Simulated scan of single mutants.
Amino acid sequence: MILYFSGTGNSEYAAKRIGKAIDDEVVNLFERIQSSDFAKMYSQRPWVVVVPTYAWRIPRIVQKWLEQTPLFGNSEIYFVMTCGGSIGNAGKYLQKLCAKKKMTYRGCMGILMPENYIALFSTPAEEQARPILDQAKDVIDRTARFLQNGESFPKADISFGDKMNSGIVNDLFYPMFVHAKKFYATDGCVSCGKCVSVCPLKNVRLENGKPVWGKDCTHCMACISRCPKEAIEYGNHSKGLPRYTCPENP
């Protein structure tokens, strides 16, 4: 069974492409995470978790969900992480998670895809994103072949920088940067409520027709990227930048 979480669509696309290639069930974790649903799940086939990379590790909201959700049936689990640059030393922490869950870790595959973290980086227009997606397809398909053949993902070489990024940098990044203080709606907002519905933590609400952000934010960028009027900004950084969502998804 393939489980995925996706804010702007990269991991969704990877999960569905892998699912089609290996003819496996694909499950979106959005509603389970949003509703704090930790009910047990069952799969005869190995588990495949497809997620974006947040500060060189899996998103903490997915980590929490995995820690609290019993996964029965097959005890083998693979991880696929989409990223704009690198997954760092994420595998070290995934191995610890698997040991805690008494599951067999079969490796972590990083897939380079278009940058979507508009809070800190530049996001691509569709014509810039397409070549990156075309290259990603080959890696996704190679990932699917490992799964189809029952092989573990190959181990990547880990540098000192990777260890630092997934370790101390990740620990500092969340309290320093992962908050919703800089999000705001412009006069272009039409009160459609899209930002409310796409937030996995129910952190956005409408007050007098305008979105207001609370304290629970995971920086998935779903609200700012999926606003149909591009009426959400993140401080001054996002001004003038394209709103990226994976163009391969409907």
Rank of each mutant, 00 (worst) to 15 (best):
H179T: 09
L120E: 13
G85Q: 04
R60C: 00
G110R: 04
P52T: 00
K137I: 09
C195D: 11
G107V: 11
I87K: 02
Y93R: 01
S191F: 08
P70A: 08
R130Y: 12
I111C: 06
G88P: 05
T53R: 00
S159H: 03
T104A: 13
S75D: 15
T123K: 03
F146Y: 15
I77D: 13
T69G: 10
V196A: 07
F153M: 10
M103L: 09
F72Y: 10
G84H: 03
T104K: 14
I111Y: 00
K155P: 08
V48E: 06
I61R: 00
E67M: 13
S159T: 15
T186R: 01
N165L: 14
L133E: 11
Y184E: 05
A119E: 13
R142L: 14
L112A: 04
C108R: 01
G193D: 12
P131D: 13
P114I: 13
S159G: 11
S122E: 13
T69C: 04
M109T: 10
D187Y: 00
Y78M: 07
H179L: 06
G73Q: 12
C189R: 06
W56N: 01
V51Y: 00
A185G: 07
F160D: 11
M109V: 10
A136F: 05
P59K: 01
L66H: 09
C83E: 03
Y93K: 01
I132S: 09
A129C: 12
G161F: 12
V139F: 02
G85Y: 04
Q63F: 04
G88A: 02
K92E: 15
D134S: 11
E67I: 09
T123N: 10
P114W: 10
V139N: 02
I140S: 05
K137C: 04
P124N: 06
Y93E: 07
D138K: 04
W56Q: 00
L172C: 10
D134F: 00
Q95E: 15
W65Y: 13
I140F: 06
A119P: 06
M164C: 08
I77Y: 05
F160V: 15
R60Y: 05
G84L: 07
P154G: 03
R142T: 15
A55Q: 01
R57I: 01
P175G: 03
K96Y: 06
V50F: 01
M81T: 10
Q135T: 10
D171S: 08
C98T: 15
V62D: 02
K194Y: 02
E115I: 10
G85E: 09
I77F: 05
K64D: 14
R60K: 02
V49M: 05
K101S: 13
